[in-house]
Design a protein around this nucleic acid. Structure first.
Lengths: 196, 196
DNA sequence: GTAGAATGCTAACGCCTGTTAGCTTAAATT
DNA sequence: AATTTAAGCTAACAGGCGTTAGCATTCTAC
């Protein structure tokens, strides 16, 4: 049978993961079957196992790739000399851009991570917690400096992170405003909500 | 066999729906089996069908109960003589309280509605769209009056709604601040983010 | 106390699930 | 041209799924 055409330097496995992310986003992890995924790729379900070892590995790969990218970003950010509110704004902008460009993977990792199997589940939870703690620390530093309103920092973090998740609705809306305007609007509302 | 004890005036069906909401919230609709649900209630899966007609009916009931409560609220709100920003703040406070008190059902309807079967799916989508349009109109009225920043109203709506979804994380956190403080913080950030 | 309704049980159905084994074909490498 | 590797196939598995049928028990109302 004909082998599927694939752009050079993009392995079969990467194509599978990409398509899996799309399906997981649309129907959810549990509601996506290996037969669904195979059909989208034009092959039989069993053939998938020449490239991957389990359905859960797909989810695992997606979640940890996204997590790693955010962890890398926040660590790079913390190494700079910016004020904490400037750092926070840059992280927000990064979040927004990731949600605009890479949104399948980001949404899946945000929404489907519960279905990870151990030990990945625990390890993902820890990454998530660490990340949020770093954002919280950023906000608390901003409050201490008087740049940010005296609010509960963990509450602020969860507002920020969840607000960004709303970009999914933007993707689905028929008359999208352009990404730059979206970013500007979100930053306006969220940052001026925080600033003192 | 012994019949399950139940508080007066709470039908068996209501107990089932309540427990279903809990499980749907924790594991997701697809990942919750009728056998899981039955076990939590101390009965066999088949026995559930003396009270309900399908698994999807459970989801349907939950989603539309929540949707109806929000639709009722916004209609009552629109009938008052408040300014649009005051209306918006009241709706926000209502959202927050619902998420604090009734959160299983609210989260399920927010997250699992995709799994509704037709024709409920279409009808739910329409309700959702209508509701968001009303919030958008509220914001646009506020902008026209000069009370609210000149921002893209649909973007503001999606930020508000998703930010409120973050209260789920608050429920899970070990050291919760009290609900009143949570509400105050959220209103502070979100409303001052909007206000001119 | 007995009838009828409410609530439960067991057994089973057809279908879908993730995954494996063993084999074939196409492309890449030597 | 021959060999190796990558990628596909069919058939099948064991287990889980939502749901139905038919029967038994318990509670409620007369």
């Amino acid at each position: 049978m004909a082998r599927m055409k694939v752009e050079q330097h993009v392995s079969r496995k990467e194509v599978i993961i990409e398509q899996a992310a799309l399906l997981f986003k649309e129907k959810g992890y549990k509601a996506t079957s290996m037969r669904d995924l195979a059909e989208k790729l034009g092959i039989e379900a069993a053939s998938l196992y020449n490239h991957i070892s389990s359905k859960n590995e797909l989810l695992h790969t997606i979640c940890f790739e996204v997590a790693k990218s955010f962890m890398n970003k926040i660590e790079a950010m913390n190494a700079t000399a910016d004020t904490s509110i400037a750092k926070l704004e840059k992280m927000l902008r990064f979040h927004i851009r990731q949600m605009v460009e890479d949104y399948e993977q980001v949404i899946v990792s945000d929404r489907e991570w519960r279905h990870l199997s151990e030990p990945h589940l625990t390890s993902y939870r820890n990454l998530r917690r660490t990340y949020r703690q770093q954002l919280t620390a950023l906000i608390e530093a901003g409050i201490a400096k008087g740049d940010i309103k005296k609010i509960d920092a963990p509450t602020a973090v969860l507002i920020l992170l969840h607000a960004i998740g709303g970009i999914e609705s933007w993707h689905r809306s028929k008359d999208k405003i352009n990404p730059a305007t979206l970013e500007k609007n979100m930053i306006t509302i969220l940052i001026s909500g925080l600033k003192n």
